[in-house]
Write a protein that binds this DNA or RNA. Structure first.
Lengths: 336, 336
DNA sequence: GTGAAAGCGCTAACAG
DNA sequence: CTGTTAGCGCTTTCAC
């Protein structure tokens, strides 16, 4: 039913190869014939079938993107960055939400292979043995973000989460805080683990005691931040409360602040709270969130740029790109 | 290089059609041969090339999704709904960010056609003549959200934005407010237009004056809410200030509240602010946002369900699905 | 410059 | 039940 290259050829009175040539500018075609072909294309409103094209070219101009949780405000921004660059180079995005489930991710990785995507961007979460197998078994270029593996051959774009968390914690310490709690992310997630490591490192290095009662693990969502804070409030005596809380992301920080406020505690007067990411809400939240700003959009954009290079066989100037972060001082932390 | 169905056939000592049959369970195959084929598939780690498959089947199991702005927290949640249902039925998502630009959207629509997607979900923004042409020219099933057209044949899933905005405004009125301003969305966006209409309707019906100085247009982003509020503050005398502001979405409401707070005005004591959408931040924001809750995830899920039905030739029980909304009373609006 | 024909990897008649 | 074969719509040698 749809019009094919054959129809165009017939209409223009030429061969299909000629049509293909003018469509792709792959070989010189006399201007007279070119015009006839173009006219036919227009008249029939022909649109090439990219499946057929891809099948012979072995190129789909498709990039698979795996995110753990698209509803987490971090990822849409990164995806926007990916999309923008990908589009610029003529690639489109096949999106998969893994819910952080490793089996789902593996399953999707297989689908991506079947769909013959030209490349894959895998955002955060862990890299398991199964992944390693996958890396071995396929030659689809892949770049990962927020999580460099030990494998030298898998390019990645990250920030230095450990150092960022170290700096954030040190910032809190420089403000005079000594009892600093942390609401961490899941420890099987690299960002979760690294940020916890950074916190630990800073505490240790400053000879500050880590009170395990002030340590809670969340899942990067608002609710888990709430729960963590509630638990701290419930289990820790008033006078033992931390003077500062470092949350592994802004969402959890916001959840924690809500609970604090609801319990008549003031932020930052009674307790300082520091976030991580600097999502859109951080500057407008009250108190405006003191946080670690990640170049979220750029993470996506750089990953996409890297992947495109990889796909097109260019050399990467560096396989691991570390992007800068900044501590943004706002109003949720105070000097004591 | 990659292993094809031919390789499997050779390995198993059967014909390609037999391999195809066991892979698709399309025809009975003796269990002995089936086992041999499966063994070969495993041994060679064969993965069918879905391009070739799609080319002959004329079915890609791909759904194109067009969103105006993936960074707007509304859409990721809707996308999650789409993804979940689509996946359940074996479809994957091709994502496009249109930035609200109509030409970009049209361009993407063409790409989707070339990519032979089985269906399209188009979220919000307008439906122009060009779109109409597109609808005419293609037979790809499409469902639109947040924006029903006059075309009876294009299924959609929406909430009644006019009535929701009407109810929201009436709610404010019922609280005793008379000077109610509005920060609307772009009027060429259906949600923007309808919500403004609903506001207008409620005001008129309650014989309340609409002060044009209290009307500002934003673009659904936090910053535009800020700007709108700043402008109102700058141009309107203190004693003429509205007692309530209705923002066309939560982001703008949050932006507005920030400006109010920064200017020493209290929310809701001095000015009430009502939002729309109930994005994740609404309940945790301070003051917790009084808003109109849309079933965001469901909008995506229902749209996807509808589209799948359409693709698979099932009858739709209704072409237009109107989902319920609810006014959520929290702390950003007060009775005066 | 242009056309004929092979083939990308798979499915689905059509025979047997 | 199983194999042979003809395409799906396109690109690309290879001749002319």
């Amino acid at each position: 039913m749809p019009v094919t290259i054959k129809d165009v050829a017939r209409e223009a009175g030429v061969s299909v190869s000629t049509v293909s040539r003018v469509l792709n500018n792959s070989k010189p075609v006399s201007s007279e014939i070119r015009a006839r072909v173009l006219a036919a294309v227009n008249k029939l409103n022909f649109q090439p079938n990219s499946l057929a094209r891809s099948l012979v070219l072995k190129k789909t101009r498709l990039i698979g993107v795996l995110v753990p949780d698209i509803a987490n405000p971090f990822f849409p921004v990164a995806i926007a960055g990916i999309e923008e660059i990908a589009n610029m180079y003529g690639y489109n995005i096949l999106l998969f939400n893994t819910f952080g489930q490793i089996e789902k991710e593996l399953q999707y990785l297989n689908i991506l292979k079947e769909k013959q995507v030209d490349g894959i961007i895998k955002m955060s979460t862990q890299v398991t043995e199964k992944h390693e197998e996958y890396f071995e078994s396929t030659s689809i270029p892949m770049v990962v973000t927020s999580n460099c593996t030990e494998r030298e051959d898998v390019p990645c774009v990250v920030i230095d989460d450990v150092r960022a968390a170290y700096d954030a914690t040190s910032y809190l310490i420089s403000l005079g805080h000594k009892r600093i709690g942390m609401i961490s992310g899941p420890l099987d997630d690299s960002a979760g683990r690294d940020r916890f490591l950074g916190y630990q490192q800073a505490m240790l290095e400053h000879k500050l005691n880590i009170d395990f009662n002030l340590l809670k693990q969340g899942n990067f969502k608002v609710d888990s931040g709430k729960k963590a804070m509630e638990e701290i409030l419930r289990t820790v005596a008033r006078e033992e409360l931390p003077t500062a809380i470092f949350a592994a992301n802004d969402e959890m920080a916001i959840g924690a602040i809500g609970v604090l406020l609801d319990n008549g505690l003031r932020v930052p007067e009674d307790i300082s709270v520091m976030g991580f990411d600097d999502i859109f809400i951080a500057p407008v939240f009250r108190p405006a969130l003191t946080t670690v700003k990640q170049p979220i959009y750029d993470i996506g954009a750089v990953a996409a740029r890297k992947l495109v290079k990889l796909i097109e066989g260019e050399k990467l100037s560096e396989t691991k790109t570390v992007l800068p972060y900044h501590i943004i001082e706002r109003n949720s932390c105070r000097r004591i």
